[in-house]
Design a binder for these strands. Structure first.
Lengths: 344, 344
DNA sequence: TACAAAAGTGGAACCGGTTCCACTCCGGAC
DNA sequence: GTCCGGAGTGGAACCGGTTCCACTTTTGTA
């Protein structure tokens, strides 16, 4: 276990001062004679020298690192999001420290403290909705915060990247209405979250546009964690006048909802048309393949990174940006026109 | 954007020296009078002081951070593994820096360099198989390395945590044989990887045990990346004497394999019995639900963390540990006894 | 009462980079 | 020939912690 060389070792071996080595390491930080530059580079290569990140961070006051704070990686949506973000960050020479919150504000608060200790220069997060003050403080301390997928109303000066939630819900609801459905179930996220409320609003707007009444008992807002989606499916199907179509707009609850549908053995799309907000590969492996709203994860990731890095380098104008990317409807075989026989 | 307080600010406000504050921060590093300890704690709380990780790392020479190096997070196996590891690490106060390799040794090499720069005290990785020298150097520099899921033959002095690959393959093959199948297809990972070869060996052992010949044309080793699983399925089904049962032992290729099976419309389990190495929730949403080998991710994660942290604190004896955890067979409805009519 | 051991404290060096600044050269303009 | 500006260089302070060590004060024991 030998010790790694430091900048002073390099300086000594190259017969120059540490200042020169540092300037070679950071071009544009000062002039170096071409001959010495060559010599220093040779020695660096020779010794296998690599600058310690901790030392650099200490003197710079901030790290070339961003924090990624998501609910949990066992949710494929976040996993794939994380994958894109890590990938995108790497191509910009930025490392990613990963933290999960399990939708628990306390764990989130902990994570933020830790990220602050690490002097990360940015944070990309799907906020739980709590810790308003903490987020504010983080930003006041110079950390560039970008919310992804969800927003927090009270923090309207934080950048947000999300999909067009209102539009997507409106379009998918409209599609089902155009197929003749009038009783459309909706399973969405907590109404306290921006995604949850935007999707409900889109759902309502589609009804209004078609001059259809909204039956509030068909709308179920359930938490992101747990199996509440399955339960909601059960209770919707048990209604006296059950829906003839269902939109699962809570991505985290899609699996549990579909599992319940499979268990009850209800015929899709004959007895129930289904649209889910989740374009995981497995959605085409079910019988029938599911019609889905595709959430363009790479776009979310790219924009989030652009915002964080842009602010890091001060290349962005002041004022919060809200970026909404379009989510496509990908029709497969889980939606069918309503036929009278199943209009119970 | 105000500046965060430093240890000297705390010392000044509490009327003590920085040494005392530091000793309060790190119990066991020296005595502090109870009264002063209280006062220092009060000031810390008052000022909202938090020690900078970079400074601590610089003087300690290593960071309370581990690197997690996996192929890619869009693979649910790695995603869930990462989830468990992050979770487990957090409970020990350790942060996780995430890097992906896409199975590319060059990207892997890059990642290792970066982690070295960051002075991580441990690395948990699913190695690509390359970079032998780099791994060795990492370990020589005092970084605790643990391979998870896969091993590298040449690095027999590195800790490894994996499932019982040989056993799992032997048992699932044996199960199919006991159902009467004699032509069993196997799709596995590259034979150059420990998982790939162990699973083929288990498959062969089961045949030998039943005095069945092994038809090498039924065994397909395909890369972890890409859609080779689907192609292998296609070519297996196109054989003059196609298999009556199939084991997909390459977790990364399960989705593409199942997709192909669904596309060809082959009857499962009537025409083909199927066992896959992947216990993702979606495997029970297909028709029929798939019989799977469950890979106990939390066990893998727990053991890996235990090894890394154990070595970090020097609590472990010298010598590499190889931990194999048992993977259960979870029967569902994709396996059936061979009936003569479909023994083509 | 004397003296050794232990408790408590603060000064200063150190970890390994970056950066400011003073200083020496040099070429070109006048 | 003098003067000026810029290229090139190295010394030293600094970032914010930890730790060693010397020193003072207490405590315990003979």
């Amino acid at each position: 276990m030998r010790k790694a060389p430091t900048i002073r070792d390099v300086a000594a071996a190259a017969g120059v001062s540490v200042s020169v080595v540092s300037r070679v390491l950071n071009p544009d930080s000062g002039p170096v004679a071409p001959a010495k530059r060559q010599e220093v580079l040779r020695v660096i290569d020779d010794l296998g020298y690599r600058p310690r990140a901790a030392a650099r961070e200490l003197s710079a006051g901030h790290a070339l690192t961003i924090g990624l704070v998501v609910t949990d990686l066992s949710n494929p949506f976040f996993a794939r999001l994380a994958d894109r973000i890590v990938w995108e960050a790497r191509s910009h020479g930025v490392q990613v420290v990963l933290m999960t919150t399990q939708e628990d504000p306390h764990l989130e608060a902990d994570s933020l403290d830790t990220l602050l200790d690490r002097s990360v220069s940015g944070v990309i997060a799907t906020p739980t909705g709590g810790n308003i003050e903490k987020w504010r403080r983080l930003r006041d301390l110079g950390v560039n915060v970008v919310f992804i997928d969800r927003a927090i109303e009270e923090l309207d000066d934080v950048d947000v990247v999300s999909i067009e939630n209102f539009d997507s819900a409106q379009r998918s609801t409209g599609h089902l209405i155009s197929l003749g459905h009038t009783r459309i179930g909706l399973i969405t996220g907590p109404l306290s979250t921006s995604t949850g409320s935007a999707r409900v609003n889109g759902y309502k707007a589609a009804h209004q546009h078609a001059s259809l009444p909204v039956d509030p008992t068909l709308v179920r807002d359930v938490p992101f964690r747990g199996d509440a989606g399955g339960d909601a499916v059960g209770s919707l199907l048990a209604m006296r006048q059950p829906p003839t179509a269902l939109i699962v707009a809570n991505t985290a609850q899609v699996q549990s909802s579909v599992r319940r549908l499979v268990q009850t053995g209800i015929g899709i799309p004959d007895e129930l048309s289904l649209i889910v907000f989740d374009d995981n590969p497995w959605t085409e492996l079910t019988t029938p393949p599911l019609s889905v709203i595709r959430q363009p994860l790479d776009m979310l990731a790219v924009h989030a990174l652009e915002l964080v890095l842009g602010r890091m380098h001060g290349k962005l104008p002041d004022g919060a940006r809200r970026i909404e990317v379009k989510a496509d409807y990908l029709p497969r075989n889980s939606c069918a026109p309503l036929v009278l026989s199943n209009a119970r």
